[in-house]
Amino acid sequence: MTITTDKPLRADAQRNRSRIIDAARELIREKGLDATSMDEVAKRAGVGPGTLYRHFATKDELYDAAIQAWAETVNARADEALASSFDDRERLLNWLRTYVSLLTAHKGAAARITASLGDPGSAYATKCTTYLHANERVIAGLDSIRPTVDAMQMCRVVGGVAAVADQSELNAEAVEPLITVLADGFLEA
């Protein structure tokens, strides 16, 4: 568990923590979470293993901190999709493009997060909940969404497309027909 106190971190401890998080983000983007070791993160950050483990006891805790800004981005991007003046189909397509892009920003994240949906004990539960709530807001903001579509379904099916895109290293152009099919299936004719 990450060490938390009521006192703010000393300036040097905050710098170390930031360097660790930055190094983790870089390595996760380059190699994926599974292929990234805590030792590599410490080396890239220029800190000793003890310093790293004082801030993050597990790789999952480190991963959680490394993509925290991502959760804030998810909410902002859902709001942007809904705020546009496009019709429901285009607003949904914009959200689905964004959703796939966000899920694939960190190598291996799409499959991990999608597989963890509905598991409150998962190390990725916070991220899953963030996506679930974002999809709930998008669904509620679209008048022509099928009444049978729910946020968990949307998370799972779009997460599946994102996982395939991530693992197959598909570009946005190759993913576009897949999300178009999803959008058309989510909307009433």
Rank of each mutant, 00 (worst) to 15 (best):
T4P: 04
H106G: 03
A13V: 09
R29M: 09
K43V: 14
L52Q: 08
A125C: 11
L9F: 07
D88V: 00
K59T: 04
P8G: 15
R137A: 15
E40I: 03
T4W: 05
A111E: 12
R29H: 06
N171T: 08
F186P: 02
R97D: 02
T4F: 13
V175P: 02
Q14H: 11
T98A: 13
M154S: 11
R54S: 14
T148Q: 12
Q167R: 13
G48C: 00
M154Q: 11
A35T: 06
D34E: 04
L170M: 14
A115K: 10
I139T: 08
K59F: 03
L117R: 11
A165D: 02
G50M: 14
G141I: 10
R137E: 12
V175E: 01
D88K: 02
A69L: 09
E188G: 08
R77Y: 00
G46T: 10
T114F: 07
A66C: 11
V138M: 05
L182S: 01
L103T: 02
D88F: 02
S144E: 14
W95L: 06
Q14P: 08
E72H: 13
A123R: 08
F56A: 14
H106P: 00
T98Q: 10
Y99G: 07
T58W: 00
R17S: 08
E90P: 06
L62T: 02
S37F: 10
A125S: 12
V164A: 10
P49D: 14
E188H: 12
Y124V: 10
D34M: 03
V181W: 03
T36I: 05
A123C: 13
A183T: 13
A111V: 00
D22F: 05
D79E: 14
T5A: 01
D150H: 12
R15H: 09
T130Q: 14
D150R: 09
